[in-house]
Structure formats: C-alpha cells, structure tokens
Design a protein around this nucleic acid. Sequence first.
RNA 1: GCAUCUGUGGCGGAAUAGGUAGACGCGCUAGACUCAAAAUCUAGUGGGGUAACACCCGUGCCGGUUCGAUUCCGGCCAGAUGUACCA
Length: 926
Amino acid sequence: MEYNFREIEPKWQNFWRENKTFKAEIREDKPKYYVLDMFPYPSGAGLHVGHPLGYIASDIFSRYKRLQGFNVLHPMGYDAYGLPAEQYAIQTGQHPAITTENNINRYRSQLDILGLSYDWDREVRTCDDKYYKWTQWTFLKLFGSYYCNDAQKARPIEELISVFEKEGNQNINAATTQSEKFSAEEWKNFSDKEKADVLMNYRIAYLSDSMVNWCSELGTVLANDEVVNGVSVRGGYPVERKSMRQWSLRITAYAERLLNDLDTLDWTDSLKEIQRNWIGKSQGAAVYFKLENGESLEVFTTRADTLFGVTFMVLCPEHEMITSLTTQEQKEEVEKYVSWAKNRSERERQAEVKKVSGVFTGSYAIHPLSGERVPIWISDYVLAGYGTGAVMAVPAHDSRDFAFAKHFNLPIKQVVVPHGEQEEDTSLWQESKDSKAGKVINSDFLNGLDVKDAIKTAIQYIEDKNLGYGTVNYRLRDAIYSRQRYWGEPFPIYYKDGIATPISESELPLLLPEVDKYLPTESGEPPIARAKNWQTKDGYPYDCNTMPGFAGSNAYSIRYMDPNNTEALVSKEANQYWQNVDLYIGGSEHATGHLLYSRFITKFLFDIGAVCKQEPYQKLINQGMIQGRSNFVYRVKGINKFVSYNLKGEFETDPIHVDINIVDNDVLDIEKFREWREEFKNADFVLEDGKYICGYEIEKMSKSLYNVQNPDDLVEKYGADTLRLYEMFLGPLEQSKPWDTKGIEGVSRFIRKFWRLYHDKDNNYTLSEEAATKDELKALHKTIKKVQEDIERFSFNTSISTFMICVNELSDLKCNKKEILEPLCILLSPFAPHITEELWNLMGNKTSISFASFPAFDESVLVENTFKYPISINGKMRANIEIALGISQEEVEKIVLANAEVQKYIDGKPIKKIIFVPKKIVNVVV
RNA sequence: GCAUCUGUGGCGGAAUAGGUAGACGCGCUAGACUCAAAAUCUAGUGGGGUAACACCCGUGCCGGUUCGAUUCCGGCCAGAUGUACCA
C-alpha cells in the first residue's frame, strides 16, 4: 500500500472545516497579512483547470505567511450578479437567484476539494441583500457628494449648497458639467427642479443625457470597457451610439489621483501602463477661435506650436454649434451628413476609420494669431467625447488632418522643419510630418524656436492675450453606471415630481423586486418596471435601472474585513487592523474595468472617511491564462474513415475536434471514440504503429472545442496535492501557457517518493530520533533557503524543483531522521497541505500544521572551508581548483598558476591580467 | 499605428548580483527486478566530432560594452496581450 490520498485528503479537509482552522480574527499581537483572489462569477460551466491557478498560488502564499506568524485574512466569495443567469432566466423562466445559487454550490464543492485555506465565515455574495445594502449605501454617498478641485477630494453636496446660497457658483472650483454661472440671488430664485438640475451637474453619481453604447440585443447600455471593436464583450452583439438619460460616475474627477498613485503600487509595469493609457493624460492648450457671427469656438490642442499651420477647423457631427454655423447654401448637405454620421453603428465607424468623409459648413473662423479666415468643416473623425469636440486642423503635421485636406483639396502649410531637413513643397507630400522634434518656420514670433520651446511660448502668448489657456485633457470618460437589466442592484432613488431623490440610509437595502418576466416592458422600460408597487410608500416611483456588473466588486475587498457588520460597510476597528489587500491575485483582463473602478471607489471612500487607505490593492499579480490544448482526428472527405496524424498527407481530410478526455498523450482511445458519438460507431481507422495519433492545437479552453480539463477528474485520479503542485510546476505564474497533462506523473511520483521517506517498505511509519548527518542537514537547509527565496518572488515552479532535488538526495542518503523530515514537512505544507498534515499528525503533533513556524535556516550548516573555483583562461572555462576560503588574492593566484591544467592552457604565454572574483571565478588573461 | 511583455534542447521550463547555459520535470534510449506487465531503481539524453577523450558550435537575428553577455546597451525580426481617428 502506498500513499492513499483518497482517504487522507477528505479527512483533513473535514478537520479544517470543523476546527475552523483558517478563521481570521483581529489579533493585536500578530501582524496582519491580507491575501485576496479576484472572486469569480459563478457560471454554469463550473471551474476548469485555469481557474484554480491563481487560487492555488494565493493559498500557498497565505499558508506560507501563516507559518511565518502572520495573522492572515484569506477570504472568498462570489460576484453573483451578471448577464448569463439573467439570459438563462429569460429563456427558461427560472429565477436568476436559483441559477446563481446552484452554480455557487457547484463552485464551492469544486473549490473545497482543492484544500484551499479560506475563511468561509467571511464569504460575500454580491446579490445578497446584506451585501448589496452597502453597494447601495456607497451609491448614496456618491450621489450626496461633489468633487472639490481645490481640496482634491470629495465633499458633501450640502457644503456646495451653502456656498451657492452665499455667493452662487462664481468661485467654485469643482468637477462639473455646469457651465452657466449664477449668483446667490439667482440661486435663491431657482425652482426646486432647477436647483436639482444644477446640483446634478456637480454630484459624483449623476443623471445626464449622454451618448452611450447601446446594445439592442442585450437591451442595455454598456461601459466603454465592456465594448471591444464595436461589439459587446459579452455575446459579441453590435453596439451603437445613442443619447439616453443615464446614471454616471464622475471618475474623471479622480483621473489625476488615479494616475499619480499608480507610482505607489507594487504592480507590474505593463498593467500600470494599461491604466495610464486608459486615463490618457495629455497636456496642451485650449484656444478660442472667434467666429464671424461673433460667437467663439474652443478647441483643444497638444501642439500649440503649430497654430500658424492651421488651414481649417473641424467639428464633430454632434457639435452643438453646427446649426448656428451652417449657412443657408450648405444647410441641406450638412443635415444629410450629420444624420448619416449619427446613424452609423459603432462598428461601421471603426471599420471604416481610414475612409475620409465630411462636409463644409459654409462658415469661417478668424485665426486668433494671423487673423486669416479659416473654413469650418464637419467630420466624424473628430470625436464628440474628447476635448471640446472640435479641432484646429494642421494638415502638414497631423496625419488625420492631412488625409482630410488631401481628400477635400484644402491648403497644407508647413510650419515645422524636422532637424536636418529643409522646407518643402507640401503639394508633393504623400504624408504629413507628425514628428515632435524640429524647428518652427512660417510662424511669426515662433520662428526659429524648437518645437518644445515653441509650445511653451505659444501657450504663454495666448494666455497673455486672453486667446486661450494651458490645460490638460484626459481620455478617461465618466463611467455609465445604469443598466436596463433585472439581475443587479436597484438604485436607491425615487422620483418626486420628476426630481431624483435618494431614499434614506435607514431604508436600505432597497430589495430587488420580483417580476413575472425578465424582459423589458411593452413600453420599453427596464424589466424592474414590471414589478408591482415599485414605488415608495407615498407612491413615488423608484428608479427602474440596475447597477452594472462592476458595482458589486468595487468595495468587496473592504467588506471582507467586516462582512457581517449591519451598521457600517466596515467598522473603524476592522479597517484600521486589516488596512488593505497586501496581495491580490487575478487576471489582467480587469485592468481597465474592475481594477480602475475599485481604485476610484476606494479613493472616494477614503475622502469621506469610511476607509483609511487610498489604494485597495498594494501588490497585484496577474496569473497567466491557461489555454486549452485541443486534439483533432482527421476524417477522410466523404467517408467515415479516420487517418492518424502523420499519415493524413496521403488523404484529403477534415480535422474534427475530439474530446481530450478520450485521448491520452495524443493517442486516441479508439473504443471510447466509437462510443463517444453515434456517428463514429462504425468508423474505420488508418493507424500508424498500431496507434491512432491525434493532432493538436492551442486554443481557448471552451466546452465547444472539447478541450476543457476539469479539475475534479484530476483530483479523483491523482489527488489534490498533486494537482496543486502540478499547476504550479507548469511554469511561471504570470505567463500564459497551454494546459497539458503530460507532466503530472512527475509530481505524482514526487508525492509518493516524499511519502516513502517517512515509511518503510510495508508502508509503516518509521522515523528515527537519531541525530542527522552533515550531508542530511545540508540537503535540508539548502532547501529551506532556496524555497523561501522562491516563495518570496512567487517562483513556485522552481521551489517545487528544489523539493524534488531534496527528496532525491534524502532518498539516496536513506534518511529517515525526524530532525530532517519534520522541518521538511512543514516547508512543503503550503504546497501540499493534505499529505503534510497527515505526516505531521503521524509524527505525534496534535495541532494543525498551520500554526507551526517556518523552519529556520541555519547558514552554518552550509558553510564550507574550501571553495571550488572555476578557472577561465581568456574568458573560457578551463579548470576547477579547490581552494581554502579566506586566503588572500595573491595566494589564490599562485595556486592557480601552479596548476598543471592551467599551465597547459597558458602554454608559456605572458600573463597580462588576473581577475579574481571572490567565491565566483578566477580569470587569467594571456 | 502606438504601448507593454516574451523569444533558451523533442516538450514545459531553470540560471536570484555579468561568472562552468540547459537545473527540475516530461518524453525518449538502454539496463536491473519480473514468466510477463505495471510500479520501482540505475545509466544516458543540445548539435557536430571521437573507439573514448580532446576539441568545435550553440540562448530569435545583427552590432556594441566587457577578461567574460541568456543576462547590460543600440538596431532589426517574430509571437502574445492591451489599445486605437484621443487632436
């Protein structure tokens, strides 16, 4: 009998559950460490081997930190609101809560068999009213706050109201869409509705008519990060631009802080870079162009140095000044163009980026510096959402303006000469010169300046003459926060005489109502509108939208600190103790969604004093994706005959995906294949060496490609410890890699070998109390040192290699000494918790291994009195010489030169130099 | 187009501070045990070369710094990911 994981693994899982071994409580005597996994959306498909990768890694680190004496918080929960459950509800009528509950139970059982050390008492579910009460509470706070640019933080909206009453909004510097100024007097005379409308322009959570990504297939709007290439991320349905009244969050107010604080985080450069790009800060200038009708048009530019190169202006088709600008002659054409542009779907627009289109308004602006007349055009290459929705076109130095000028035959004026070039005839150009280095020409007072200096000088000039001002623009947009769906958090808002009014905090949570169908109403209202009595006691209607998928995950890491608190999101005490997440593990696909939104919300909660940290996740590791490895069989065209991979060239074949569970090391199990599907029952095969070899390809892991590897099957076959080790052994945590079961035998062998160290031939536990030998101690301490270093840098694959070497050495030494094997058992416990708990118990220990301390590394065991010096001659390794440590460089050189092997290579030539690197190498240059 | 990352045997991958490249595992080859198989154990396994050594070549490509480069610098090529009319 060998190591029996089928009996031992459930035994210890039960032990941990019953003893609440991993329960985390505030303990002032211990330092805290908070390890968090991105909680999963419980989909109907269950877990595949890709999901546990991060969970196993975080579990190893949690267990390691516990051994080091840290009080570890390691919770898990479910991001339970989401589209799939709702889509399923629409099709079947089954309540999404039931689907979700079932899926969660399946997830839980799959997680349990992996032996993960979660504190399940802290589980959260975003669809649980006790949880979403705080999602709604956060929304009320966002609604009740504005962002003060002077203080650089969120402030209560009441403060703003009292300022309005005293002095109007003349001196307010806040993040707002309010452009009209008013006095205290005017404010007092506003109607309630007017006041509410003004305040709405300042709130951090606000209602506005905004251009949204509307997906009619899903019947809802989507955030920018939920749309890729003009189609929805979920489902791949077309998305169009549409103006709708929606809730938004003023995340743009936090752009600067979100950008700057990236520097304080221990994240990978690539992830920080993704966020920086998404925020997209650009420094530049706003410039006013006077119009002939007396109005003024504001544009944003990063290239104020090229002002004299402006030969036309372009407005986006949505620009509000189009009507007033269009002349009578151009009216018809402009209207035609604008309606054409508005009706294009996002996808069409993106697909035809290179096609130039546009129309002339008939009007002109006056160039602020030269006084020349500049024609004003309309084109959809100018985006409504960025800057002012209008640009000054400098065709000579901007490729888009250039393409436009070429297409409509507009003048092109060169104002920058790149270093080492001469001014050229722009009519001969095939492309613009966009480079940001060179000397300015044809530009009056800017002539001769370098681009960089010219930008500064130009901005200074326009500021002095009141023609504009230096400013900053961000690409980041406010987050659209409402969805026209059922399965989400209702907004704690009702409408009193058309004014959006918050319900009081004491009425939270506002429960998600029951509905008869999960579809929009006949009049096109969201599904919640179907609910009976969806109104306050006084009969005012509630908001019918629900919050988006990311709402529930914004502050979940904070809620885990105090998940059962009914009085607050988190108590001061719990928040002070747990602070924020020390280690966060999850996929990088959340870079511009969850990771940005939750940073924003955490900063907001910090501003209102609800939490003590500005950043939610101090260190972040993105585990790589595990791709699927699909197998193929090759069917001869037209007949039911299959050709082995290497012989398929002789036939005309179609590759067909075959279930990887009936393929072993690319060899097809023909019997199982025949049973797999009715149509293959009578199939013929052309074999090679008596086997049918399948082809393979690396693809996404997906049910439809028959390449999903289920962790349960592997646990059943090899045990959880082996699966844990193997997932880590597969390669570096952060790298994407294809799943491949080939190597799992190797770690399975290692586990059995490890077990055998503690047992004799008949599988009886035998450890001796004898003192360990020098070699045994060396093997152990070498391992302690390296494993600790490897864990610290999350190189779990190499730590496992180190364990393998150690076990091999101890097997060779026939070591069965407790002095060695007890610390080794502790050392391995984060990786393989079940087998080590069993051995720990066999060794006579009463408590769980989690409370043991990490084995101390004894340097003295590894100290040698001699060192093997590699000797290189002219940089090439030629010999090894054993030399006592601590002797002088001169002596080392003497010994080296006296060596016969070395003499052979020096071959009598004069020695130019000897380079001696202590403990490393001696290099002789001849 | 732009940004970030990656490129090492038949395969997954080591090499932590510029110092004997290929640890560890898989696979493969031979052998031991066995009637046989499984399991286990032993030896070998980058390429060329040799009876065996010696020796030569080798970390995507080209160049640089250095006594010495997988590692640092410059330029290219390829792949992955993200993002894209952001003025």
